[in-house]
Design a protein around this nucleic acid. Structure first.
Length: 264
DNA sequence: AACGCCCTCAACCGCAATCAA
DNA sequence: TTTGATTGCGGTTGAGGGCGT
C-alpha cells in the first residue's frame, strides 16, 4: 500500500469506544469469514478501525466465552497466587482463568487486589491459609474454577482447554520458568469438578475436538458452519446457563437471533 | 442542583516476538 | 540473513459513573 493512502487511512480511522453497530459488524464478519488477518479484515467488515483495535475489541469483549462481572474468591486467589509467582505476566495468568482476559485481570489487579494485599499487608500464602479454612473440604486439585468455552488468552493457543483445572498446590515451588511449568501442569490437568460442568464439557468437546485450530478461528468456523443452529444454541445454552445476564451474552444472543441462527 | 474528586474499565500506545517473503 | 508485516503483551490513559460536599 502506498504511503500516502496509508496516512489518509490512518487519519480516517475511528478511535474510542465501540458502538453497538460496530460490534455487530465485527461479529458478523468473523462469523462469516473467520479471523484471517486483523489489519485486512477491518475494511471488508465495514469498519473504520485499525486491525489492532478490532482484535482488541474481539479478544477482550466480543469473543464468545468471555466471562464478565465479579471475580470469584477462587479467581482472586488464583490471580494473587500467580502474580506472586509470575509477576505481571497477565496473559499467562489469564490462561489459568477461563473466560477472563488479560486486560480484565490486569484491571482487576490494579483496582482491587493490589489494594487488598497492601491493606492486609500479609503474604499471599498467609492470605490463602486464612481463606482456605472455609474451603478446606476441597482438595487442592478440586478447587473450582469457572468453566470456559474458550481459553482466555490468545487466538494462537493450539487447543481449546475446556476444563482448565488448576491447583495452587501443583504449582512448582521452583524451576527455571514457572510459567512453562504451569503450562505443563495445565495441559495435564483435565479434572472435572462438577456434574454440570461435565455435561457442558461434553457438549462443547463435541463441537471443538475435531479441528484443534486456533480458538478464535474455531469460533469463526463454527459460526460459519452450515449446522450452525445446533452449535450456536448449545453454546448459547452454555453461556446462558453459566453467565446469565452479562452484556456479552446479550450481544451474542441478539446477534444470533437477528441472524436467525438461534430460535431459542 | 452543581461541582469536584475518585474509581473503574475499555481502549490506546509502544515495544517485543514471530512470521513470511 | 534481512526486512517488513502482523500479532501479542503490558503499561498507561481517559471517559464516564458514583459519591460526597
Amino acid at each position: 500500500m502506498a504511503k500516502a493512502s496509508q496516512s489518509v487511512e490512518k487519519r480516517t480511522l475511528r478511535k474510542g469506544p465501540w458502538s453497538p453497530d460496530e460490534d455487530r459488524k465485527l461479529i458478523a464478519y468473523i462469523n462469516r469469514h473467520g479471523i484471517w488477518n486483523w489489519t485486512e479484515m477491518a475494511k471488508p467488515a465495514g469498519l473504520q478501525r485499525s486491525g489492532k483495535s478490532c482484535r482488541l475489541r474481539w479478544v477482550n469483549y466480543l469473543r464468545p466465552g468471555i466471562k464478565r462481572g465479579n471475580f470469584t474468591r477462587e479467581e482472586d486467589e488464583t490471580i494473587i497466587e500467580l502474580h506472586e509467582r509470575l509477576g505481571n505476566r497477565w496473559s499467562v495468568i489469564a490462561s489459568r482463568l477461563p473466560g477472563r482476559t488479560d486486560n480484565e485481570i490486569k484491571n482487576h489487579w490494579h483496582t482491587h487486589l493490589r489494594k487488598r494485599l497492601k491493606y492486609n499487608s500479609v503474604s499471599t500464602s498467609e492470605l490463602f491459609q486464612i481463606s482456605n479454612v472455609e474451603t478446606v473440604k476441597k482438595s487442592s486439585s478440586e478447587v473450582d474454577l469457572p468453566p470456559a468455552i474458550a481459553p482466555a488468552n490468545s487466538e494462537s493457543s493450539s487447543a481449546i482447554q475446556l476444563s482448565q483445572q488448576f491447583s495452587t498446590d501443583s504449582l512448582p515451588s521452583s524451576g527455571s520458568d514457572p510459567a512453562a511449568e504451569i503450562d505443563k501442569n495445565q495441559t495435564e490437568d483435565t479434572l472435572v469438578s462438577s456434574e454440570t460442568f461435565g455435561e457442558l464439557q461434553s457438549i462443547l468437546e463435541q463441537q471443538f475436538t475435531s479441528e484443534g485450530s486456533s480458538t478464535a478461528e474455531n469460533y469463526g468456523a463454527i459460526y460459519a458452519e452450515p449446522g450452525i443452529s445446533a452449535t450456536s444454541s448449545q453454546l448459547l445454552w452454555f453461556q446462558e446457563s453459566m453467565y446469565q445476564g452479562n452484556s456479552c451474552n446479550d450481544l451474542w444472543l441478539n446477534f444470533l437471533v437477528k441472524e436467525n441462527m438461534y430460535a431459542g
